[in-house]
């Protein structure tokens, strides 16, 4: 790149940042809610904690229209292929959030029926521990994810 890019009207160095800025404040999320963490997810989504302040308040119930897959709650082996299919149906760029300790590691469901962490079936971008996580924890995680989206980082 020996080209002189300083000519007026060219702003290549800023485009990534602009796209990242636009993406991180317009997260369309797919809530894959299977268990009690869903209650905490609702309180994050509703007006007390208001996830919409971060531009992530818009749930889409079609994976085709979603950017962030929020996996909220225990994933059993039986539902795991469904979750994987939903992930595969999402268009890139896409990000995955493991919400709650069951999705992170299986949690205390160390048994025959529970997937021991959804990272055994999907690439996970953000882990949010807690049983269930406090809304503040979720928002802190969301800000980490926004930082990653701004930097154009993604795993898939």
């Amino acid at each position: 790149m020996e080209q002189d890019l300083s000519a007026p009207g060219i702003m290549t160095s800023q485009l990534d940042a602009a796209i990242g800025w636009a993406r991180k404040y317009s997260i369309f999320q797919y809530p894959f809610v299977t268990a009690c963490c869903g209650m905490e997810f609702m309180s994050v989504a509703c007006s007390h904690y208001d996830i919409d302040r971060f531009g992530a308040g818009f749930p889409r119930f079609s994976p085709r229209q979603a950017d962030v897959l929020m996996v909220v709650g225990t994933i059993s082996h039986k539902i795991a292929p469904v979750l994987r299919r939903i992930y595969d149906q999402m268009a890139a760029p896409k990000w995955v959030v493991a919400f709650g300790v069951c999705t992170c590691t299986g949690g205390f469901y160390d048994n025959y029926s529970t997937v021991q962490g959804i990272d055994t079936i999907l690439p996970v971008d953000l882990y949010i521990p807690g049983c269930p996580p406090r809304p503040e924890t979720v928002l802190e995680g969301l800000m980490l994810l926004q930082k990653k989206i701004q930097a154009q980082g993604r795993r898939a």
Partner: peptide, 19 residues
Amino acid sequence: DGPPRERLTEADLRPRIVE
């Protein structure tokens, strides 16, 4: 016995992002 994964442990109390 798959490859090891970057994952949360019991010591993690805060969200962790994987780059």
